[in-house]
């Protein structure tokens, strides 16, 4: 590979600073009292948790967190189950127009959410499903289900078929093979895929903003409610941002080695 030079460290540090500074600044801001917000360059002060208390308790953020968890986890479980079964079938069976089906499944991911949200809104209006968990769990399948099929296909392709065939000969059903033999072998892949899906659902914004309003609210859309007549409540927004990014950072940390493995 290319040789390392001392000034590489300088450039890499600059890139890291550019990437990480806004997140660091968000954490700093969330710990400031309101008066300190007007001193942007002040990084040394006695931190307060008031913003977290205000955001989570007074503004009812705990309800947003619960809703986000319900929607994201239900969506992930649904997508992993359906997507893995489909990926296994695509991997094992040959059937007419298979390529067209695969293309159809994968291509539904490319449609921009701002375009799909219009018909979803009309459908939600017609079937009285706006502002429910169901409409978010279902619409999030548009981007997560194809992703599961895509990822699980690549993990399944790496397996050796001999054990499965032996089990089939011994009278195990196809579904039994999937559950007892295939899934244990791809569990790291399944895990990594699940985490990526969870993050996509957790951070989704467009559907969450326009298809739900008062009864169901996700953390990602809560930012909108911190815009008051007196301006934006920066301390609370920053606290919200930290709360929203925390599960992501934890999961990324856990998953990093799987993710890197999956990308290559």
């Amino acid at each position: 590979m290319m040789q390392a030079r001392p000034r590489d460290y300088l450039w890499l540090s600059l890139a890291c600073a550019f990437a990480a500074f806004p997140v660091f600044y968000m954490v700093v801001t969330s710990l400031k009292t309101r008066a300190l917000l007007y001193e942007p360059a002040r990084f040394v002060f006695s931190p307060t948790l008031d913003n977290y208390r205000a955001a989570i308790v007074s503004h009812g953020l705990y309800k947003y967190i619960a809703d986000s968890l319900i929607v994201s986890l239900s969506n992930v479980v649904l997508c992993l189950t359906l997507g893995t079964v489909a990926a296994y079938a695509i991997h094992k069976f040959s059937f007419p127009r298979k390529e067209a089906v695969v293309f159809g499944i994968l291509s539904s991911r490319i449609f921009p959410s701002i375009a799909l949200v219009l018909p979803f809104y009309v459908l939600g209006l017609t079937f009285e499903m706006l502002d429910t968990y169901a409409i978010l769990i279902l619409t999030f399948m548009v981007f997560n289900l194809p992703f599961v099929v895509l990822m699980m296909r690549s993990y399944l392709a790496a397996l050796a078929p001999e054990v499965e065939e032996a089990a089939l000969l011994d009278g195990c059903s196809r579904f039994g093979v999937l559950m007892r033999i295939v899934l244990p072998q791809v569990r790291t892949g399944l895990f990594a895929t699940g985490i990526m899906c969870f993050l996509a659902a957790w951070n989704e914004f467009t559907y969450a903003l326009f298809l739900s309003s008062s009864k169901v609210n996700m953390v990602s859309t809560a930012v909108v409610f911190f815009k008051t007549e007196r301006g934006i409540l920066w301390g609370e927004v920053s606290a919200l941002g930290v709360v929203a990014v925390l599960p992501v950072v934890i999961l990324c940390f856990v998953a990093q080695k799987y993710l890197v493995k999956g990308m290559s």
Partner: peptide, 11 residues
């Protein structure tokens, strides 16, 4: 460097 990918786009 991958931190920005973790942050909610709206936030």
């Amino acid at each position: 460097i991958i931190l920005p990918m973790a942050v909610n786009p709206a936030i």
